[in-house]
Structures are given as structure tokens and as C-alpha cells.
Amino acid sequence: MDRFLLLIVASLLSGCTESQTKREAEEQSSLFKMNGELLYGEKGKFGIRKLNGENDEPEFPAGKGRHYHIQFLEQSEQLEGKTYYLSALHQETGQKNDLYEVVIENGQSGAKLVFDQSGAWEVQVAVDGEPYAQFTIQAE
């Protein structure tokens, strides 16, 4: 009987740990859905999605430049005419890349971005020099 109870408790704890790990991964994920589209970024604040490339390639193919649609989702009218700057920091090597800089028009922009090596990249968004959003993508 004691073994049976121990097995039940272990199973419950394992399930809690699994669901907690899954929940933490979802919270850390930079992927969210808006108006039926999958975007990377910060939900409700900033989103980016790939516009071109092969259908079977990753969203961020390492070493290949792709065009992306960028959207400012929070208070976009207040950002109108300000300059945004994208940079990325490779999580393993510490390499920093300047990705793109342009004036915000209608709360959105197009951009050609290249992540020159595979791995996790922390993307940082600044508006007029002030930090605005930060999220992680996986270049493959």
C-alpha cells in the first residue's frame, strides 16, 4: 500500500513538474497569435513575421536574408514618426548584430533581416533610443 501511495504521489509531482515546465516555456515563448497570424515578439506590444522565402524553411533561416513585416501593436499612433532600431545578441557567442533602423509609419514597417548563425538570438527593439521590446528567436 505504501508503495502504491508513493507511486501516486510521484506521478502527481511529475505531472505538476511537466505542466509547470510547459507553462514556463509558453511564457518565455516569443510566439503568439494575432488576427489569425503567428507573430514573434511581445504579445500586445510588438510583432514580426516572415514575408518571403521557402515554405519548408524555418521562420528565421540562419545565414539567409528574408523580408519581415514588423508591427508596433501598443500605442502605435504615439510612435508615429519616431525611429526604431533592431539589434540581436547571439545567446551562445555574445555576438551583437545591428539589424535594422528606420522611421515608424502607420505603426508598421518592412525590414530585411539576416541572422548570420544558427542558435538563439535575443532581439532588442528600441524606439528613439529607449528600450521598447525584447524577445528571443531561434535561427536555424
Rank of each mutant, 00 (worst) to 15 (best):
M34I: 04
L86N: 04
T136Q: 09
E26F: 08
Q78A: 13
E140T: 11
E26P: 00
S30E: 03
V103I: 15
A133I: 03
L51C: 11
E80T: 10
N97I: 13
R49N: 06
F32R: 02
Q134Y: 01
Q117N: 09
G119T: 06
G15M: 09
D98P: 00
L73D: 08
E105H: 12
V123C: 00
E59K: 09
T17V: 15
N35W: 01
D98V: 12
G41D: 01
S29P: 07
T93F: 02
N35Q: 11
S11A: 15
L7E: 12
Q78P: 01
F115S: 04
G15Q: 03
E42R: 08
V123S: 00
E54Y: 10
K112L: 10
F115D: 04
E92G: 02
I8G: 08
Q75A: 14
A111W: 07
A126K: 12
K50G: 11
Q138V: 09
L113Q: 05
G129Y: 04
S19L: 12
E122N: 09
H67A: 15
E105Q: 13
Y100C: 03
Y132D: 03
F115V: 04
L6M: 11
H90M: 05
Y85E: 09
L99K: 00
K96E: 09
R3Y: 12
V103W: 02
D128R: 01
K112F: 08
K45L: 15
S118H: 07
P131E: 07
S118P: 10
G63L: 09
E140R: 10
D116A: 05
T21F: 05
K82D: 08
H90E: 08
N97F: 06
L6S: 15
Y84T: 01
E24Q: 14
S30L: 03
A25S: 12
S30D: 02
K96I: 09
L7P: 05
P61W: 06
G47S: 10
E122D: 10
L31V: 15
L73K: 07
Y84S: 02
F4C: 12
A120T: 12
I104Q: 05
A62M: 05
A88H: 01
Y100G: 05
G47T: 06
T21V: 07
I48M: 15
A88L: 02
L38F: 13
Q117A: 09
K50R: 15
E130A: 13
F60P: 01
G65L: 01
S14D: 06
E77Y: 07
G129F: 05
K43P: 05
Y68Q: 07
F115Q: 02
H90A: 07
V9D: 09
K22V: 14
Y68P: 06
E105S: 12
K45Y: 08
Y100H: 15
L13D: 04
G81L: 07
E37F: 14
R49A: 06
Q78M: 14
F135C: 02
I137H: 02
Q108C: 11
N52Q: 07
E24W: 14
H67S: 15
H69S: 14
E77S: 13
V103M: 12
Q134C: 07
D116M: 03
M1F: 10
G41C: 07
R49M: 11
G63K: 10
E54K: 14
